[in-house]
């Protein structure tokens, strides 16, 4: 086999490999988290985060605006402190509220932000004043069962 023929095929091989990798990178996968340079951080304290995980999306009106970067327990108040990295281009008013929502009935959990009406916006390092916790299915079911049981007792007593 001539030297140039081998070089041609090896070059083509490298090109095909690079094309396959590029296809996997651009068409098949996402690039993960937002680029670190254009984000700012916000924190929110929740009574219960349910099944929220690091790298979960932060959404406002359904649009992904950032990612959860850290979750830790605040040992002074025994609340969960969730740190998020938000895209620089999205700013939220100071009276915005953060809540933990579930996509679908059994889907992954994410942080939803509902914007308020204040003119001033939250800056880097600020925290949300108004938060509401994740819905824990067991608590709802047990509350429902207890109220049902109590209700049954009342009806029998009335009878």
């Amino acid at each position: 086999m001539k030297r140039t023929t081998i070089d041609f095929w090896v070059g083509l091989f490298a090109l095909m490999g690079a094309a396959a990798l590029l296809f996997l990178a651009l068409k098949v996968s996402n690039q993960g988290a937002l680029p670190a340079s254009s984000t700012y951080t916000l924190t929110a304290n929740f009574e219960n985060i349910g099944g929220l995980k690091v790298r979960a999306p932060v959404k406002s009106a359904g649009v992904v605006v950032g990612r959860v970067t850290a979750i830790e327990l605040d040992t002074e108040r025994y609340m969960a402190r969730v740190t998020m990295a938000l895209d620089e281009q999205y700013r939220f008013s100071r009276d915005s509220s953060a809540e933990i929502l579930t996509s679908g009935l059994l889907g992954e959990q994410y942080v939803g932000i509902a914007s308020g009406a204040d003119d001033k916006t939250l800056g880097s390092g600020d925290s949300f004043k108004i938060t509401s916790s994740a819905i824990v299915l067991e608590q709802i079911i047990s509350r429902f069962l207890f109220s049902k049981a109590a209700g049954d007792d009342n009806t029998t007593m009335e009878k």
């Binding site: 996997l24 098949v28 996968s29 690039q31 993960g32």
Partner: peptide
């Protein structure tokens, strides 16, 4: 859906 679920760094 494929793009949403496959992470470049983690999977590829």
């Amino acid at each position: 859906q494929m793009q949403g679920a496959v992470d470049f760094r983690l999977d590829v």
